[in-house]
Design a protein around this nucleic acid. Structure first.
Length: 279
DNA sequence: CTCAGTGTTCAGTG
DNA sequence: TCACTGAACACTGA
């Protein structure tokens, strides 16, 4: 679920439901893994009665600006997500009948927040790799302070982008996944960007040509922007995107253009790429 | 039963 | 000290 576009979609939902409202109810699961460094009781105390001024995001991290600090911050891990009673933040599969996934509160709910107008949001996370924290100044404290440029709002100038790549000997795929480089890029976005930029994911970052670096920067911008504009609804991503054909790891997988897709582990992650295009 | 997985962190290595 | 690599984390669902 959560790469930058999903978190941005969650931000817009949280903004709609919560901004300008006062928090009248907080329920926390007894989960010391997801609630990192804060007891449910203290977390609840920090939120109860507060007004939500804004919902902010950097990379894959989300947080609420309240009328008193500290503020809650959220990271969704691999399987976490923000939900409202009307449905999850990601679109429901069309025409699916009501099933377990539509119940309220959702399975694996870790946090429920009720607002003074009756609105409600819940954070659910099956695999418990997500984190809920309390921070006095989220963007100035770890882990958010350690992030690189936000891939949606802070794409560096071409010169600065080139500088960030200089001296990096890891495969370019690994660099794209490094949140200290580009915050918000995850596994499928990295693969999509490299496919569209026609760059072999195994290439050492510092060996990229000027033209390749230019394409790479441009594609980070366009892929992320396009996914965010689609509200993270993958049915609305362009048909030519590798995204649609990369799942399942089939030996006979091909792109929309009929190009064979290959799978390797690069940067410690499954990497889908198209050798005849990415040379 | 086994394995992959939209993410991050940490120990070990060079 | 830094960059990098791979395992670990925790759990579901195919």
């Amino acid at each position: 679920m959560p790469e930058l576009p999903d978190v941005e979609a969650a931000r817009l939902i949280a903004r709609r439901v919560a901004v300008g409202r006062r928090i009248t109810g907080v329920w926390c699961a007894a989960d010391p893994i997801v609630f990192e460094g804060v007891s449910p009781a203290r977390f609840r105390r920090a939120l109860l009665g507060r007004q939500v001024l804004a919902v902010r995001r950097h990379g894959k991290h989300l947080w609420f600006a309240l009328d008193r600090r500290p503020w809650p911050t959220f990271h969704f891990g691999m399987t976490g997500g923000l939900h409202t009673p009307s449905g999850p933040s990601v679109k429901l599969v069309s025409s699916r009948r009501r099933d377990r996934r539509d119940v309220w509160p959702p399975r694996f709910t870790k946090l429920r927040v009720t607002l003074d107008d009756g609105g409600e949001v819940a954070l659910a996370d099956a695999r418990r790799l997500g984190r809920i924290r309390l921070r006095h100044d989220p963007p100035r404290e770890p882990p958010i302070s350690l992030l690189g440029f936000d891939a949606l709002r802070q794409l560096p100038s071409p010169a600065r982008f080139r500088g960030l790549l200089r001296g990096r000997s890891a495969p370019i795929k690994a660099v794209l996944l490094d949140q200290g480089f580009a915050a918000g890029v995850g596994n499928w976005i990295a693969d999509e960007v490299l496919y569209q930029a026609r760059i072999d994911p195994r290439r050492r970052a510092q060996t990229l040509s000027e033209a390749e670096i230019r394409r790479l920067r441009g594609k980070i911008g366009s892929v992320v922007t396009t996914a965010v504009r689609a509200r993270s609804d993958s049915d609305r991503y362009p048909r030519t995107w590798l995204f649609h054909d990369r799942w399942g790891r089939s030996a006979v997988a091909v792109t929309a253009r009929g190009e064979p897709i290959r799978y390797d582990t690069v940067g410690g992650r499954t990497t889908a790429w198209v050798p005849i295009v990415q040379r």
